[in-house]
Design a protein around this nucleic acid. Sequence first.
RNA 1: GGUGCCAUCGCCAAGUGGUAAGGCCGCAGCCUGCAAAGCUGCUAUCCCCAGUUCAAAUCUGGGUGGCACCUCCA
Length: 466
Amino acid sequence: MHIFDSVQKTKRKFTPLEEGKVTLYVCGPTVYDDAHLGHAKSALVFDLLTRVLEANGYTVTYARNITDIDDKIIKKAIEQKKDIKEITDFYTDAFHTEMQAIGVKRPTLEPKATQSLEAMYALVQQLLDKGHAYQIADGDVYFDTASDSKYLSLSHRIQNEEDKQERVESSSFKRNSADFALWKSVKDDSVTFDSPFGAGRPGWHLECSAMIEKHLAYKDREFAIDIHGGGADLLFPHHENEAAQTRCATNHALANYWMHNGFVNIDGEKMSKSLGNSFFLKDALKEYDGEVLRFYLLSTHYRSDFNFNTEDLMHSKKRLDRLYRLKKRLFGVAQNEEDTAFSKALLETLNDDMNVSTALALIDDMISSANETLDTAGKHKQLKRETMANLAYIEKVLGFGLKNPFEYFQFGVDGATKEQIDALIAKRNEAKKAKDFSLSDSIRDEILAFNVNLMDTPQGTFWEKI
RNA sequence: GGUGCCAUCGCCAAGUGGUAAGGCCGCAGCCUGCAAAGCUGCUAUCCCCAGUUCAAAUCUGGGUGGCACCUCCA
């Protein structure tokens, strides 16, 4: 398997630190609001990565944190006059529900910031002891970026004159302008934690390093973990700072490979509150099947920026429809999980830095040739068995095609409407039997008014929501 | 201003030195009572200019046009 390392900026062969095992850490959500399509994209990308790694035989330990200490959470709690935990529990549950709806499996570990405070204190203490951090008069603890010769090596940034100027101007608290807070002292009685450095709250970069040390890190290796992932925006400053903390506090670097997924834009615009509800996952899920969203969001390369729009989404859905129509044709055929030439080829292309586009082309080809054979007369026992295996592999590795194919095509149609449609179909079939085609066609138009397409097949008449 | 990324058919999108995958849309045909679905066939020389090479969408230089990060952010 090869993955693109966004720090070395090159595709590298993946070699785990420990044979057969992979440790993966991805920055998860701050639970103060609903998940948007960008959260979905990131979760989907690393869900896919996990599946591909597992398909290669690795045992993956995947940790994705829940940030439940944050100024925005506190702000929301005050605004809504609610308990902090009430807010964070609510959005954590919502996150889980929505991720499940788009087929994202739960990570192995989901550490919460509130449960990792001891690990954070330990990390800050190590940094203080080693002279990589300092505490100022009002209690804040800062990371001393000047003490880390490798600072900015991750994001390849260069400290320029402007920064140095700024440094002089705002030199009242921090030694260098780039220094970031490890611990923020809080004097009021809002939300504080009693640390060895006084009452306050952790800096936002600290959490990830601490959790990795506590839950994932190899103690005796050059790197704490194999792969660290997140959104493209996190490379700087978040990951840069994480890497600096870990490098300076412990005897190892943070991660061997860094992976960053591209951004989701909506109709060419960067996501923002001004776009209203259009970017919340929960709202998209009201309109579209979660698997359609999964398929669409994963249909282009994970590193590219993604322009979300409903027109492309519908076009993408038509591609997934083909998969489900083949499933309909094979409905009732026994499950099968044998290896096939197709599954081998599929994994091979996914192993190339998760080339989903080529994988989809392989799937389209597989579907076409299966349909072609099925269209011809005769028994197709062997083909059906293999195709079932191919479909099962697609389900396992890509997470597409998990639903009942008939239900898939009935998304968003309520029970009463279904009964009406079924009744109309029965009426139409009688008209057809009597060769009253003008009546049967007018019934079809009636059904079409529900946005429902009819298909007459040897197995009977089926319908699909358009 | 600093750093970096991108530009491939009407739309979405692979391919990164060996002569342009795939999907949507469109056209033609087979199938169908007619449709739908399915199948078959057809549809681009890769933003512009110059260079390197036997060979470039793929490498180099220049230009034009987008975008991202540098502040909370997936």
